[in-house]
C-alpha cells in the first residue's frame, strides 16, 4: 500500500477512511466500554473471561487516561471543541491531552497552524481556557 508510507498524523495524513470517520476521545471510549462491560456483567458471572484481551487492555487504558469522568463534561468538551472548525482527529487529540498553553497545543497538533487556517493564538487560547473551565467545574 503506497498510502501507508505517506501516513503522518501531524499533517493529518491518516487516510480518507479515518479522516471522515468519527474519532473518539478516551473519555468517550471509557463510557462506551464500561456500558458494554456492565451489560456483560448482567448476563454472565465472570465477565472478564468473556472479553478479549484487546477489550480488557483498552478499558484499563481509557480508565487511566480519561480526563473527564462525568458524561455531561464529556459532552461539553466535544461541544466546545467542535465550535472551532477542527477535524475530528484534531478535536480528539486536544480532548485527550488537554494542553495548557498555546505553544503546547500547537506542538501536540501541528496541523492547527498549517494551510492558513483561521487559528490564531488568541482563538486557541480561548479554546484552551474553555476546556480548563469544564475540567474545573466537573
Amino acid at each position: 500500500m503506497s498510502g501507508e508510507e505517506e501516513e503522518n498524523a501531524a499533517e493529518l495524513k491518516i487516510g480518507d477512511e479515518f479522516l471522515k470517520a468519527k474519532c473518539l476521545m478516551n473519555c468517550e471510549v471509557s463510557l462506551i466500554l464500561e456500558h458494554k462491560y456492565e451489560q456483560l456483567q448482567q448476563v454472565s458471572e465472570d465477565p472478564m473471561n468473556q472479553v478479549s484481551q484487546v477489550f480488557e487492555k483498552s478499558l484499563q487504558y481509557v480508565k487511566r487516561f480519561s480526563r473527564y469522568k462525568n458524561p455531561d463534561a464529556v459532552r461539553q468538551v466535544r461541544e466546545i471543541l467542535s465550535r472551532h472548525q477542527l477535524t475530528e482527529f484534531e478535536l480528539c487529540v486536544l480532548g485527550n491531552l488537554c494542553p495548557e498553553t498555546v505553544e503546547e497545543a500547537v506542538a501536540m497538533v501541528p496541523s492547527l497552524k498549517t494551510k492558513g487556517r483561521a487559528h490564531d493564538d488568541e482563538a486557541i487560547e480561548k479554546m484552551l481556557n474553555d476546556l480548563s473551565l469544564v475540567k474545573r467545574f466537573e
Partner: peptide, 15 residues
C-alpha cells in the same frame, strides 16, 4: 465498532 488505530506522528499517552 470501536477500533484503536495508531498513526505515525500521533501523540498519545502510554504506561
Amino acid at each position: 465498532c470501536v477500533v484503536f488505530r495508531p498513526f505515525k506522528g500521533e501523540i498519545l499517552e502510554a504506561v
